[in-house]
């Protein structure tokens, strides 16, 4: 899919324009580009599936859709080594803390794709007593892929959108600014109290 084909939403391009308007340092800018090229082309998913969408994710790896073409086939079972979680399936009350923990265990930079209507809003189970109505209350979401379950093509499109999004990040000074531990604890008093 050529890059120009993403005609549906220009906000990412606008974001880039806005960011580069002020101008960037040549060396830093080029390095950033290199790193972003690497990151956007090497998105490793976490093996995580709760229900039906997970099976379509398996199909995505199979010969017909072959996500290996894009380099996404290195599904890591350990969250420390994965880049994004594809939340494929319903997240229920009991699963919510687990999902949150998995997200916390991912190493930065980390991304979340809400895949399927259950992950987006609760889907057909929205009115249930034991279902989270969308995962955005639990983890920050980067890309939403609608469908019940989404077709593998839609999933490919979703991950490609994520890949676009990764390209506009800035490594030097940007998202990767390291938070000092004291600073973090000051912002998160709960973590301190739990100790």
């Amino acid at each position: 899919m050529p890059y120009e084909a993403f005609k549906d939403n220009e906000y990412i391009e606008n974001l880039v324009k806005e960011l580069t308007e002020a101008g960037t340092h040549v060396v830093v800018g080029q390095l950033d580009k290199l790193i972003n090229w690497g990151r956007s082309n090497s998105l490793w998913p976490l093996t995580f599936a709760t229900s039906c969408c997970g099976i379509e994710f398996v199909s995505l790896g199979a010969a017909r859709f072959d996500m290996a073409r894009f380099g996404w086939e290195v599904a890591r079972a350990s969250p420390r080594q994965a880049d994004f979680i594809m939340v494929a399936g319903t997240i229920v009350n009991r699963m919510a803390p687990v999902l949150r923990r998995l997200y916390d265990q991912l190493a930065e930079p980390k991304y979340v794709i809400a895949c399927g209507s259950c992950a987006i809003s609760g889907g057909p189970f929205r009115r249930s007593y034991h279902v989270a109505k969308g995962i955005e209350d639990i983890v920050p979401v980067d890309v939403y892929v609608p469908g019940c379950p989404p077709r593998p093509e839609a999933m490919i499109y979703g991950i490609m959108q994520l890949s676009r999004k990764v390209k506009v990040e800035r490594f030097f000074g940007g998202v990767n600014r390291k938070l000092k531990q004291e600073e973090f604890l000051a912002q998160h008093p709960m973590a301190e109290a739990a100790k």
């Binding site: 709760t50 399936g89 319903t90 229920v92 699963m95 189970f125 249930s128 007593y129």
Partner: peptide
């Protein structure tokens, strides 16, 4: 229980045709 979605309860509030999709 990590994917318990309460389908039985949900069905009680839907018409017969609507219960099918679960």
């Amino acid at each position: 229980g990590y994917i318990h979605r309460g389908i039985e309860k949900l069905c009680e509030e839907l018409t017969y045709q609507q219960t099918l999709h679960y």
